[in-house]
């Protein structure tokens, strides 16, 4: 039995400790926003936050998350209102949408660490996330927009 916290909620998971966190989150905990794309740390579709850092859940063993804090796309914000989510919706970033959970989770770490990223910063931070539909141009613009929204929100506080 492995205990972990996902999106602030404690879960006891009875599964093979070698099971990738991805399948535990999807099949057992039942949160399907985190996606399977390659199973080989190549595409970033499965990106979640483990204690605040981006990890590829397809190659992260469930045992590694024991006693840790996991955040998935479902926990990125309460009402789909993280500045990145707002920007993504404003600029119609998603096409098929399958990669976007991972894109957003990677971008969230970038924006937290670097509130005013340049194009180069964005390209570097997002290089692990594939989008087969080719939404990259909009992802770049949306991260800039989210940075602006975040700054505005801070300023008004």
């Amino acid at each position: 039995m492995i205990t972990l916290t996902v999106n602030g909620q404690k879960h006891k998971v009875d599964a093979d400790p070698n099971m990738p966190l991805l399948w535990a989150i999807r099949d057992i905990i039942g949160l399907t926003g985190t996606k399977y794309g390659c199973g080989a740390a190549q595409c970033g579709a499965c990106t979640v936050h483990l204690n605040g850092e981006s990890v590829r859940s397809c190659v992260t063993k469930l045992s590694r998350a024991a006693g840790q804090q996991v955040v998935t796309i479902e926990g990125l914000s309460a009402n789909n209102n993280h500045p990145l989510q707002q920007a993504w919706n404003e600029l119609n970033v998603p096409q098929c949408g399958y990669c976007q959970s991972g894109q957003l989770m990677s971008a969230a770490v970038l924006l937290r660490e670097n509130p005013q990223p340049t194009d180069q910063d964005i390209d570097d931070a997002m290089s692990g996330n594939i989008c087969r539909c080719g939404t990259y141009q909009r992802i770049r613009s949306a991260i800039h927009l989210a940075a602006e929204l975040q700054r505005k929100a801070m300023a008004s506080k």
Binding site: T34, E74, L76, N92, P94, Q100, S101
Partner: peptide, 10 residues
Amino acid sequence: RRDSPAKTNG
């Protein structure tokens, strides 16, 4: 797009 929100929150 009306499918955007559902594609940004899982």
